[in-house]
Design a protein around this nucleic acid. Structure first.
Lengths: 130, 130
DNA sequence: CTGTATCCCATACGATACTG
DNA sequence: CAGTATCGTATGGGATACAG
C-alpha cells in the first residue's frame, strides 16, 4: 500500500483543480454524512428490506434511514423496488455504480480499525499535554 | 479495482461487528467532515503554511481551517511546528500515519470525478420524475 | 502572519406520534 | 411493514472583528 505516493500523488492532485473540486465536494457531502457509508456497507451484502437495514445499523433512526436511502436513490447508488403485497415489502439494492463504492468503504473501514488505537493514544496525550 | 468483491467483502464485513464500529464511526466523523480530507489533500504536497492552506482550499474560512488543523493534530495525523520569527511562521505537515490516508483520499477523489456525471444525471431524472 | 473571540444561522439529527 | 409529519435540540460552520 506504500509504493505509489509521490508520483501518483502529484498527478492525482494536479487533476484536482477547479471543476473537479465540485465533484469531490458533492461526493464528500454524500458519503461523508453520518449514515450513507454504513447503509452502503449493509447493502453490500445484497438485497435488504427496510426493517432489515434498521436492525443491521445500530443507532440509526427510522427517519434518518428513510432520508439516507432517498438520497442514495436520488444519486443512482441504490434502487428501491416496491412489491404490491400485504404487508408491503420494499427491497433496497446497490446499483452497479453503488457497488463500485464497496472497495473504498472496505478500505476505509480497514484503515479505521487499524489506526484507531494510534488516534486514541494521540488524543489522550494531546488532551493531557498543554 | 474489481477483482476482490464477494470474498473480500464477506471477511471485511464480518470484522465489523461491535467494537470496530466505534472506530469506524470515529474515523468517519473526522475524515467525513467538510474540510479534513481537503486539508490532507493539500498537505500531501508537503509542508504548508497556514496562509498557503487558506489559499489552496477555496471556500474554507480561517476559523474552520484552524479547527480542522487542531483536530488533525490532536488525532496525530498532522504536526504543527512554530518557528520563533517575526512575522511568525507556522508549518503544517502530515505525520507518517496521516500519509497512509493519502491513497484513500486519492481513490475517493478519482471515484468522485469519475462518477459525478452519472450522479448528476441521476439526480436530474429523479427530481424530474415524480 | 497566524491565529482567537463572538455572534448567528442553517440544518443535520433524534424522539415521538401517526398512517396506508 | 414501511414509511410520513412534526417538533425540538445540538452543532457545524460562516462572517466579522480583534490580538500577539
Amino acid at each position: 500500500m506504500g509504493d505509489a505516493t509521490e508520483t501518483e500523488y502529484a498527478s492525482a492532485c494536479a487533476a484536482v483543480s477547479d471543476s473537479d473540486s465540485r465533484a469531490i465536494r458533492a461526493v464528500l457531502d454524500r458519503i461523508g454524512d453520518k449514515w450513507s457509508l454504513l447503509v452502503i456497507g449493509e447493502l453490500s451484502h445484497g438485497v435488504r428490506r427496510f426493517t432489515g437495514l434498521l436492525r443491521g445499523i445500530p443507532g440509526i433512526s427510522q427517519r434518518m434511514l428513510t432520508l439516507t436511502l432517498r438520497q442514495l436513490e436520488r444519486d443512482g447508488l441504490v434502487t428501491r423496488t416496491v412489491h404490491a403485497e400485504v404487508p408491503p415489502r420494499v427491497e433496497y439494492e446497490l446499483t452497479p455504480v453503488g457497488e463500485t463504492l464497496i472497495p473504498h468503504a472496505i478500505a476505509l473501514a480497514h484503515w479505521a480499525v487499524e489506526h484507531y488505537p494510534s488516534i486514541e493514544t494521540s488524543r489522550a496525550s494531546f488532551d493531557a499535554g498543554s
